[in-house]
């Protein structure tokens, strides 16, 4: 076993055409019965968004509020891919990709890399740099096909992953003070927050509109700008989320995006496919 390990992720997507990138990404979806019939990733999330709107009355404004908030945070992040603000009107007026999702509801095609150093608390103390402790980690899986899921309006794999991580950490969801979540599409952020139990089903949208998930809100979400604004370099996304949780916990978030009040416990949630798998980590500032 090694004492000090570098965990990294890297992605290069801009050298291929949009078509090639879409086809490559779609291999994470069910090929034989969904992609074969014309499903795309925005299409699968569009189906989830339509189901969510139908069941809970989620609105265009609620989806737009996720993009506006994440772009606001990303504009403060010096390494964000799209470091600019967008308005509710710009999101609502952007081109439709897959109903009801518009281009500003979608994360982009991104190049990027991220790395963290994983070691024991003893070694971390010796190194003398600020560190965070991984309190718990969990993985959850589900069917690859959206058609076979028990729910189109939540991410059951994320629930499993969070339960396992919380159980390992010996914590409750109420102990978590902020999170980085996999907002590949605006609807995904709302569904994940409801699945993790931060909000009741149907209530993440109104809470986002009310500013509860903003940097100065009661439960800041995606302070980095998220996949939406910071970028979704697929192979690097999970590690990049851990980097943001580290920065927030150690008070090192640049550009005025530091969450106020010195949060001590944070969570990151990453997923694959249209929710076929999820990984959750819970971290606490080292002392």
């Amino acid at each position: 076993m090694s004492d000090i390990v570098l965990a990294s992720g890297v992605e290069k997507m801009t050298d291929c055409s949009g078509d090639e990138a879409t086809a490559a990404l779609a291999t994470a979806a069910e090929q034989e019965y969904e992609v074969f019939n014309g499903a795309t990733f925005p299409g699968l999330y569009g189906m989830m968004a339509n189901a969510h709107m139908h069941q809970y009355g989620t609105t265009r404004d609620m989806l737009s509020a996720v993009a506006v908030k994440n772009h606001h945070n990303g504009a403060l992040n010096p390494v964000a891919q799209y470091p600019f603000e967008v308005s509710m009107e710009q999101v609502a007026g952007s081109v439709m990709v897959a109903d009801p999702l518009r281009i500003l509801d979608c994360s982009g095609i991104t190049d990027g890399a991220a790395a963290v150093i994983v070691t024991s608390v003893d070694v971390a103390k010796k190194l003398g740099r600020p560190y965070v402790r991984i309190l718990g980690s969990g993985v959850g899986t589900d069917t690859i096909a959206l058609t076979q899921r028990s729910s189109f309006t939540s991410i059951p794999a994320a629930k499993l992953a969070a339960e396992r991580a919380l159980s390992m950490a010996g914590r409750k969801m109420e102990d978590i003070q902020f999170a980085e979540v996999h907002d590949c599409f605006t609807i995904a952020e709302l569904m994940i927050l409801e699945t993790l139990g931060v909000y009741e089903p149907g209530e993440a949208g109104p809470a986002t509109l009310a500013g509860e998930t903003s940097l100065d809100g009661t439960f800041p979400v995606n302070s980095s700008g998220g996949l939406k604004s910071k970028g979704h370099a697929v192979g690097a996304t999970g590690v990049a989320q851990a980097v943001e949780v580290y920065k927030q916990l150690t008070g090192r978030a640049e550009g005025d995006r530091q969450i106020p009040g010195h949060p001590r416990v944070g969570m990151c949630h990453n997923m694959g496919g249209s929710g076929a798998s999820s990984v959750v980590h819970i971290m606490e500032v080292g002392s």
Binding site: P42, G46, M47, A49, A98, F152
Partner: peptide
Amino acid sequence: LLTFTVIRIAPSQWGDLAPYAIGI
């Protein structure tokens, strides 16, 4: 129909059919 979407920007393979609806 439980849910659906209308794909307006499609991969080139489906381009001539867009916009098309797909659902469960």
